[in-house]
Design a protein around this nucleic acid. Structure first.
Lengths: 174, 174
DNA sequence: GTCTTCTACTTGAAGCCTCAAGCAATTAAT
DNA sequence: ATTAATTGCTTGAGGCTTCAAGTAGAAGAC
């Protein structure tokens, strides 16, 4: 631990502040938990809904939107993914008949993605299993205090990684 | 606990326990924070070290191992990924000259992956930037209490998603 | 021994993600 | 109105991940 070092990603400088033992353990636990959960949900949904977790999350966002439709860019922002990724994803979801695209009336560049009835069915059928998986992984294992703490912590983290200032394009802070 | 349950993922059944409003918000915050951080680190390391975060994590595991080498299966377990994924990953890292494979003397099926000097160099050069990114995203933003809470929460979550019982193969709970 | 089963690891195809580049419509500048 | 800059979205190539299937050695049963 410690060491002069120098040379960070951008602009070298004074010796970096390494992580303490506790911080390393926390970081390690974070990595393991998030990796395991992500994989677990991907598998669960691939099996029960025929799509990876992030695709499922997109359907959820659409289902909650006003007329079950949303502008592509807005959806990308809400789901925290790039527009490119969203384009590919919606293309695939469209192939399955779960989502469709329509031109935006007010802006001829724009596209709305909307959830089809078929997509809504898939969502409703797989929702219980998904909720149950999330519950078993998180909410059934944590005390009410811990749930509150987790929420606050994640909010702080998300805020720090957010676009901040401008609502430019996703790869924030190039 | 509670609930006749019956078929969520498989087999339909009694009404599922949906998430409360607070739980939904926490889950949403969790998804956003973890997605944003993962993307952020992937970008940071792709830029500064020429590899995605998970590959970097593999190098870290190797660097900490006794003679900088580890059996494939053990490495996969520690990193919480499938052996298949590891095989592909090590193949790529080998192409870059950061890792090499060697036959395991005691078990002719086995392979050791070991970190090359070159790999170690890359690691040392990019470590400060990586630590700094992790720090900015997490440890500089949370109070000491929150860091402790996060550690405990992630440990509980990871434990619940772990192989449990047998040390079979990764896709736990097929 | 030899048959079965299990463990260690690899492989190829198909799907997903990233990056850079691109097109088209809108807005701003002059 | 023309030009330039910006915004909205897509595309294709290359890299990464998953899944199912496959090879080879080790362990156990008999």
């Amino acid at each position: 631990m410690t060491m002069a070092s120098t040379g960070n990603g951008a602009g070298t400088g004074g010796e970096p502040r390494w992580l303490s033992d506790e911080e390393q353990h926390v970081w390690q636990a974070y990595l393991q938990a998030t990796t395991l959960l992500e994989d677990h949900l991907d598998r669960q949904l691939q099996r029960d809904a025929g799509m990876p977790h992030i695709y499922y999350a997109l359907l959820v966002h659409l289902a909650r939107a006003p007329r079950r439709r949303m502008r592509m860019t807005q959806l990308a922002k809400d789901a925290k993914i790039t527009r490119s990724r969203l384009s590919h994803a919606i293309a695939r979801l469209e192939q399955h008949g779960w989502v469709r695209r329509e031109d935006c009336p007010s802006d001829k560049r724009g596209q709305n993605a909307f959830l089809t009835d078929q997509g809504n069915d898939v969502l409703e059928k797989s929702a219980p299993g998904h909720v149950s998986a999330v519950r078993q992984a998180i909410f059934d294992r944590l005390s009410p205090e811990q749930v509150g703490q987790l929420g606050e912590i994640m909010r702080v983290m998300a805020e720090g990684l957010q676009p901040e200032g401008t609502g430019a394009d996703l790869p924030w802070r190039r």
